[in-house]
Design a protein around this nucleic acid. Sequence first.
DNA 1: TAAAATTGGTGATATAGATCACGCTTATTT
DNA 2: AAATAAGCGTGATCTATATCACCAATTTTA
Lengths: 192, 192
Amino acid sequence: MFELLHKKINETIDITDQDFEHVKTLFIPKKLRKKRFLLQEGDPCVYTCFVERGLLRSFRIDEKGNEHILQFGMQGWWIADLYSFLTGVGSQYNIEALEESELLLITKPSWDTLLNEVPALERYFRILIQNNLIATQNRLMRNMTISAEERYTKLISEFPDISQRVPQHMIASYIGVTRETLSRLRSQISHQ
Amino acid sequence: MFELLHKKINETIDITDQDFEHVKTLFIPKKLRKKRFLLQEGDPCVYTCFVERGLLRSFRIDEKGNEHILQFGMQGWWIADLYSFLTGVGSQYNIEALEESELLLITKPSWDTLLNEVPALERYFRILIQNNLIATQNRLMRNMTISAEERYTKLISEFPDISQRVPQHMIASYIGVTRETLSRLRSQISHQ
DNA sequence: TAAAATTGGTGATATAGATCACGCTTATTT
DNA sequence: AAATAAGCGTGATCTATATCACCAATTTTA
């Protein structure tokens, strides 16, 4: 259950087996079936979630009822509504399993404890968040500088399996277009 | 010169005077005149920069020659091209002073040293980056969910002095529209 | 202080992508 | 197995924003 988390942490910092045993005690393992929610809009985001296996998405629904995906949470990634998790306010996001998933959850109090008791993890999370920031800045700049078609082809080339794993309308709402537009872009691309 | 940095660090973590004296030795104070560059596209981003006084912007120029602003670096904020700073590869961004500015610069080797010698700063930077990530995610979602006009009015209400301090075409390139579009939005807004 | 550059406003037109509306498959649920 | 929902494609039309082209005022630079 904790293999992937252990591996991921070890990739960035050195953690003793003893410390990792302590880490284990603070996480709550959970299986989440497809289409079930880890977080619903309005509720505080109680857990930060590490994805051991499966696939999740975090998304928001605007006033017109359109979905906008902030993040796909793939195997080995973390997913949460950070702001809600840190402040305890009601979340504006939903987090839903797109596949049957195995998760490791940690609450804010446990996370605070963990960071105090295993200071090396402060660096692990700093680097994790740092990489996430870089990726989010890139995505923001891409949205401003390149066309929907380019955004789509770049996404597919970075995550080739994504179009098999998630429906097209979710890919559309991740790159910031409607499902109709993506459908037309795809047919253009396939006709050379 | 170091007052603001000291204050900002103290707002998030406890740092001893002794540790802060050490911090001071690793930063390079620099004055940058208006329109001068701290970083030019293609060069590696050698410094991460804390703005003691003044205003900077980081931006990118696309193939068509249009500018896109990633960040304004206001007093008390940090600015850099994180990816280039961490990896040493040539940057895709420019960083330019929009006002006469007083900066505190730190190189990657010094920053690494600092984090090892003053572990408490690991938390300071984790929280700094965490807040930046939250803000960047919000901006990304806003760009996908709300109109240019709303983006403009929200920016102005969050940073009321910005329209006095930076030219309109830069505000336009921050919210992701052309200068012409922003000009028209502004005249609409002023005519009620 | 004259020349050049920057800033910002506005008209005419073009276009990427949204919206609405429909039909056809393929999964899911009961 | 039937009923329902989800997923995807596509035509017709609409709209927000981009593009191009120009002008006037202000600021910066030589």
